[in-house]
């Protein structure tokens, strides 16, 4: 098990370098950060040159990347163009997005697995067909459409919920945004669980469990569910990253000042330290989630643990 973890950690190193390098080159290689800093005004050439020198902008790109990485490992993400340290922005934005992601994740996992399980157990019946049709519908509609429609209907027209999320992003305001964010993934989880359950329900070991005289409930919870959830867990883990990225759209719709909002601002105002800083942290979270999935996978399936 120890070797397994170490191998996984080592595999993360090249992935981390590759993704951060890519985003660094894309952001710093295009556009002029100094010009963006001054907005509409033209900077004094001497000042501009000084700033370029201070920010190492005259060095080759690969050197800039190395310097940036050195700073990051010291906890210094640089300053946004308005002079605010990026770490401060990270500190306010990530908790908000994390809350939204947790909300979406819980909805996705609980509702998705429950729908998939019951559909899988009642293959070909009304409930199963209903779930299949509904999930297909959800997958086909873009997130911003469901977002705006739900916001208009529930928030504006019927006034059931706040149309936008309030200060500090309380969980009760985040339910609808969470549902919108979870939507597509929820449909995938439901379908994946259904297929997995349907496949496992024909397995030999389930016949054995029935032949042992176990009650049906126990056959399903102890013998079928755990085997069926192995692929679902993999999907859920990798989806944490997707949810955070997807939050970009949802946060815009519901005016949530999270990661998506900050990255959007960073891109619009051509603010490289913010964009690279946020993306770097997202990459770390994504890698962490994947590691967690691999470990969980090994816990669920002993055949992997001892391989």
């Amino acid at each position: 098990m120890g070797r397994y973890v170490i191998r996984r950690l080592l595999q993360m190193v090249p992935v981390f370098i590759g993704t951060t390098l890519l985003i660094f080159v894309m952001v710093y290689g295009l556009g002029d950060p100094v010009a963006a800093m001054f907005g509409d005004r033209t900077p004094d050439p001497a000042t501009a040159a000084q700033i370029r020198h201070d920010l190492h902008l005259n060095d080759p790109l690969w050197q800039q990347y190395l310097i940036y990485m050195q700073h990051i490992f010291k906890g210094d993400f640089g300053k946004a163009s308005n002079g605010q340290p990026v770490t401060e922005l990270l500190g306010t934005a990530f908790p908000v997005t994390l809350r939204l992601t947790i909300m979406a994740f819980v909805i996705e996992a609980v509702v998705g697995i429950a729908l998939g399980l019951f559909a899988g157990l009642r293959r070909g019946r009304f409930f199963d067909t209903g779930v299949l049709a509904m999930t297909l519908l959800v997958v086909s509609i873009p997130t911003f459409v469901t977002g705006f429609v739900l916001q208009y209907l529930l928030g504006v027209k019927w006034g059931v919920v706040h149309p936008s999320v309030g200060e500090g992003a309380p969980f009760k305001d985040l339910f609808i945004p969470g549902l919108v964010l979870a939507g597509v993934s929820l449909a995938y989880v439901a379908r994946l669980t259904r297929t997995s359950v349907a496949e496992n329900s024909r397995a030999d070991y389930l016949r054995t469990a029935v032949a042992k005289g176990l009650p049906r409930r126990r056959v399903i919870t102890n013998h079928m569910l755990r085997n069926s959830l192995i692929p679902v867990v993999t999907f859920l883990g990798t989806d944490i990253g997707n949810l955070m990225a997807g939050a970009l759209v949802t946060e815009r719709i519901f005016n949530i000042h999270g990661v998506g909002y900050q990255i959007y601002q960073g891109i619009v105002h051509n603010n490289p330290p913010t964009v690279v800083g946020f993306v770097t942290v997202l990459v770390i979270i994504f890698l962490g989630a994947n590691l967690l999935v691999d470990l969980l996978y090994a816990v669920l399936d002993p055949r992997i643990r001892y391989a």
Partner: peptide, 8 residues
């Protein structure tokens, strides 16, 4: 195949 692979 008749024994459950994930249970001891």
């Amino acid at each position: 195949s008749s024994l459950n692979p994930v249970l001891s």
